[in-house]
Amino acid sequence: MKMKEKLAQFKSIIALLLLCIILSIMSDKFLTVDNAWNVMRQISVNICISVGMTLVILSGGIDLSVGSILALSSAIAAGLLKYGVEFQSMNLFIGFTLLGAVVTGTTVGSGLGVFNGFMITKFKVPPFVATLAMLTIARGLTMLWTGGYPITGLNPSFAFLGTGWFLGIPMPVWISAVIVGIAIIITNYTQLGRYIYAIGSNESAARLSGIKIKNVKVWVYTIVGALSAIGGLIVTARLDSAQPNAGLSYELDSIAAVVIGGTSLSGGRGTILGTVQGALIIGVLNNGLVLLNVSPFWQQVVKGMVILVAVILDKASRKDD
């Protein structure tokens, strides 16, 4: 059993290594330090979101609204940072510091997550539907907030979050690494993590064991909301602009990373490290296909095939489950 689990974990690493070897043979630009950081920086946003997505999927749910939450919370953060808030009737103007804007943005993301969790637990809306609704609601609110135009020209120190380096490592990579670390601790060493797995595997047994299912679920959707917001802040900082279309279809990339990483869509089985590997595979593949000048249309086809192959291999390795 243990051997097999270990093997299953190595499987995606082996796939990743193979991919890297093939790409470094085919393109001399692939195996360079610059390109490595480039890939890491590119996937850091997906990793932030996918870590949250892993928790949601482990608990037996799904979150389709991550991309829209990313857009809304980063647009709000950017807007507050640039313009502040003005209440004309009270003759009041509130300006925002960098920290204030970042915290508010993350809070907005968490709040939307709480809303999702509340719909799912209190009103029993299936997660797919509740977060599908949030996908369009948050996107609509983003359009309303920005008027459909990007918010650009932000505080230069904000850009550091997306483009800066610290101790020789890009900031986005730091941020995603810290998030991954915390998530590993949560899933393995906390009651919340244990309960997430229990609920995803057998909700009824979890309920009868006195686990507060609703609280756990609300927490999970809150976390994914917050992580989407953080992902949004990274994107915004890197581009020095909050795009109303930011995060479009990011939910699909993150679900792909989770699935390639070996997490079961029906919940209860999977790991954060698996998801990180999944995100790496997608990231390396994207990068390689660009370096090899493969047409973007073919890139999509290849990505879809990789998802299928990954899941089929995963199923095969667990045949006697």
């Binding site: 244990r194 229990a198 009824s204 047994a205 209860g268």
Partner: peptide
């Protein structure tokens, strides 16, 4: 099986 155990988890958990 349905209400008592999380079958995929080990005995200790």
């Amino acid at each position: 099986k349905k209400d008592g155990l999380v079958l995929q988890m080990n005995i200790a958990k």
